[in-house]
Nucleic acid binder design. Structure first.
Lengths: 100, 100
DNA sequence: CCTTGACATTAAGATTTCTTGATATATTGA
DNA sequence: TCAATATATCAAGAAATCTTAATGTCAAGG
């Protein structure tokens, strides 16, 4: 998993998206299913532009996708990304097994 | 997993440690088992103090542990941390399953 | 149209992180 | 004890990131 430079770059991006508390809390909210931005603004104590900034970070990393419905925009977790993290964890486990 | 503030803080730290390409490449090398710093300096094209900086970041996050042996210091992945990441991935999967 | 509401984008400053070069520490062997 | 080697730490600048406040955009209702 970490042999190919492209994978290293991709994983670094992914982990960076998850390396911020505000973004992790957003992810936490999205575990309950798709949410409109207004719900997230209420739930987290983050100002509007701050929330938007972090949603963009999550979206750029491919972790979430957005969907416009009238005036509202809904964000949801992208299930594909999970596989990438799982592959990484898998490769680490193999490595750990080999060495200990 | 992401309901408790302490977990959010811990995961953010952990993911931050994994959010850098140099550090991910170090982890990649450590998958083959414990390595002394000298091996890593050769394998990665990183200067000595730079490598030391990133090893400290990994160590502070609890991802690796170090062991001195004479002149050399050996670093190895900490297998405990894997469980934390796995728990996170597990919670995301449940969330994704619930919503789709 | 015009206004309002939901959200995105931009700009600027504060803070954090990373890199590099210099210096410090610790261990070994002469 | 001294020199050499391996690694850590420090200091300073560069670059990236985050926050806040202001402004832009777009859809809906009047």
């Amino acid at each position: 998993m970490l042999e190919r430079p492209a994978d290293v770059t991709r994983l670094a991006r992914l982990f960076h998206a998850l390396s911020d508390e505000t973004r992790l809390r957003i992810v936490g909210k999205l575990l309950g299913g798709e949410q409109c931005v207004c719900n997230l603004t209420d739930a987290l104590d983050a100002g509007q532009s701050r929330l938007s900034f972090h949603l963009k970070a999550l979206k750029d990393a491919g972790l979430v996708s957005d969907r416009r419905e009238g005036r509202w925009v809904h964000y949801a977790l992208n299930p594909d990304v999970l596989q990438e993290i799982k592959s990484f964890v898998g490769s680490v486990r193999e490595g750990a097994a080999r060495c200990c």
